[in-house]
Simulated assay, not measured.
Amino acid sequence: MDEAGRGCIIGPMIIAGVIVDEKIEGILKEIGVKDSKMLSREKREKLFDFISDFAEAYIVNKAYPEEIDSNNLNDLTYMKIIQIIYASLPFQPRVVTIDKVGNEEIVIEKIRELGLKDNVVYEADVNFIEASAASIIAKVIRDRIIDSLKKIYGDFGSGYPSDPKTRQWITEMYEKDKNNPPPIIRRTWKTLLKIAPNYHISKGELYGY
């Protein structure tokens, strides 16, 4: 499993799980499956189709901005991952490989409860073909969602807070309406304090402390 869009200020985070038979790991390597960040969008799209054809299955979960704002991001990521693990059980997986984020104990405990082997490590998307495949699935699906959102809200760039185009778009939205941000913005991101302060909501405000 892997995710795409954790650090974005716009749009959902996508979590994907890919169920891979060991017999096809070599095929996936041969066709160029690797961490999605190392691939062009065109290559990711092609590999998406190959993975769809060769994998036993893939499972996708989503976390939308309001949900991300209302939860600890690492806890939410693992909650979504656990949901994918349960959804994968009919395929009888043996090993669960996850690109580690934060304190992994909660997900490791759940994996072991289910009688599965845990492989929760940093850079799993670089070092394990199944996580690389999941990173491609997650990234392609998020890219497609972002394309759809741009048709509604205009071109906001990559959606990452470091992207000048994204920051400019938020600034323009703020100038039009300082009190009603587009629902695709994650309102707890601190970037907003500098460019759109009225849009920002702290976790404390949401949790009531």
Rank of each mutant, 00 (worst) to 15 (best):
M1A: 11
M1E: 09
A4P: 06
G5C: 06
G7T: 07
I10P: 06
M13G: 04
A16P: 07
V18P: 04
I19M: 11
K23D: 09
E25Y: 07
E25K: 15
G26E: 12
I31M: 08
E42A: 15
R44N: 11
E45P: 00
D53Y: 08
D53S: 11
D53V: 05
D53F: 07
F54V: 06
E56T: 13
E56F: 00
I59S: 14
V60C: 08
P65D: 04
P65E: 02
I68M: 11
D69G: 07
L73N: 04
D75M: 03
T77G: 01
I81W: 01
A87I: 06
P90T: 12
I98P: 02
G102Q: 11
N103P: 00
R112V: 08
E113N: 13
L114I: 03
L116M: 13
K117Y: 04
D118Q: 13
V120L: 04
Y122E: 05
A124I: 03
A124D: 05
V126F: 01
N127F: 00
I129E: 00
V140I: 13
I141H: 06
R142M: 10
D143N: 06
K151S: 15
G159M: 00
Y160D: 11
P164C: 10
T166C: 10
Q168A: 15
M173E: 15
K176A: 07
K176P: 00
K178Y: 06
P182T: 09
I184R: 12
L192W: 03
Y207V: 03
Y207R: 15
G208Q: 07
